[in-house]
Design a protein around this nucleic acid. Structure first.
Length: 388
DNA sequence: GATCCACGGGAATACACGGATG
DNA sequence: CATCCGTGTATTCCCGTGGATC
């Protein structure tokens, strides 16, 4: 946090202390280096990775748990450390190796939301593995595969690839992912991360074990919220009791809790409150639909889809009586034809980003129209979208 | 020239509903 | 009464084109 921001935060206006918050610290899509209170699951992940320190690759594994239970937060933090440790200083791992051979495993984190094709997937893995830049176009997918093989050619190398957000709408499904992994060199083990319980996914047909993430306990969630709040502003910004209210409402889902907190902080800032009030919290909670789609999914959408969503949020209710009318209005402010906008709107609804609500009754003929309800935290989206 | 993929457009299909038909 | 039909929408699906990069 730079000095400028710290000073700004202390500035007064109208003699009143004014709340200023650092929205990045509250963002449900931002993960911290050091997730709060995740000891037990972290230990289980390290247990799984233990063979690495013995000079072997671990088997494939599956990490699962509901949205907002900390899967991405913990795995990204862990892999960040491992990547740093293995690339900056291989010795760190070598010296703890109990056998003589110098086994230098690599660690790769891939977000399936960003890699929806075979090409993109192999590209992501290879790009993380080699220093030179890897072409994004113009070469065959098979060319990437052989380069991967070459990159892991050494006798004492191997890689553990964590693939996050599998089997979401719009990302790789289990079958496709397993097929892609079959095209990887044999010296690669994968750690799949998804939401489905082990018995509801084909992924576990190919893994030796599964690691479960439970929804956050209310008390832990309160800690998470308070930690984020103090990173974003001052500890006094949020009353402990209000944090508890948010946590109770969120029912163990850190994503939703942070989204609500973000909305509450935004409301407080706009009302020039000196701290977050109960009414602000109520407004913050109200701006998070339930069930709620993860913002991470929304922000990994292509730019023009996000544009369409942004415009959708600016329309008046009377402009979105039907999908057709909605797309025509949106097409006016976006560089896409109404037909294309319409198709995009249907795709977004299909993926659960929005929800179609069919009108009760219309005048006469024809199938009744639908309106689209956002299924993601709109306030947070607007703020972070504007900041992009 | 190869290769990947985003775009755009519209054709095809499904649906709702009232009214006609057998 | 059951079914079909016409009309006007909503919704899904498919495929060609073109930019960008190697």
């Amino acid at each position: 946090m730079d000095i400028e921001a710290r000073i700004q935060r202390r500035q007064r206006r109208d003699g009143e202390p004014r709340l200023l918050v650092d929205y990045d610290s509250l963002s449900p899509v931002a993960h911290t280096d050091d997730p709060v209170n995740c000891g037990p699951v972290l230990e289980r992940l390290l247990d799984y990775l233990d063979p690495v320190f013995d000079g072997h690759l671990p088997p494939n594994a599956y990490v699962y748990g509901p949205k907002g239970s900390g899967k991405s937060a913990v795995v990204t933090a862990l892999f960040d450390h491992l990547v740093r440790a293995s690339s900056v200083n291989n010795a760190a791992i070598h010296t703890t190796t109990r056998v003589q051979a110098t086994f230098a495993p690599r660690f790769v984190y891939v977000d399936a939301r960003e890699t929806t094709s075979a090409f993109a997937f192999y590209h992501a893995v290879l790009d993380a593995l080699v220093d030179e830049s890897v072409p994004k176009q113009g070469i065959k997918t098979e060319a990437l595969q052989s380069r991967l093989k070459a990159a892991l050619g050494g006798p004492k190398t191997g890689a553990v690839v964590a693939v996050d957000h599998l089997e979401e709408p719009g990302t790789l499904d289990g079958e496709a992912f397993v097929d892609l992994c079959a095209g990887l060199p044999s010296k690669v083990s994968w750690l799949a991360i998804g939401r489905a319980p082990p018995d509801e996914t084909v992924l576990t047909d190919y893994t030796a074990g599964a690691i479960q993430f439970e929804p956050y306990q209310s008390q832990v969630l309160v800690d998470v919220l308070m930690t984020r709040v103090s990173a974003a502003g001052s500890r006094r910004t949020l009353d402990h009791r209000l944090a508890r209210d948010i946590a109770e409402w969120a029912d163990g889902d850190a994503h939703d809790a942070l989204a609500a907190l973000f909305g509450a902080a935004d409301e407080a800032v706009r009302n020039r409150h000196r701290s977050i009030t109960a009414a602000d919290v109520a407004a913050g909670i109200a701006a998070v639909p339930r069930p709620c789609v993860s913002l991470g999914r929304v922000f990994s959408l292509p730019e023009n889809r996000q544009q369409v969503l942004h415009e959708l949020l600016t329309l008046r209710p009377d402009q979105q009586q039907s999908v057709q009318a909605t797309s025509q209005h949106i097409a006016k402010s976006v560089d896409l034809s109404a037909t294309t906008v319409k198709r995009i709107l249907y795709e977004l609804a299909e993926d659960g980003i929005t929800r179609r609500v069919t009108a009760e009754r219309v005048d006469r003929k024809g199938r009744p129209p639908s309106r689209l309800e956002p299924q993601f935290p709109t306030v947070v989206f607007e703020r972070l979208f504007a900041a992009q």
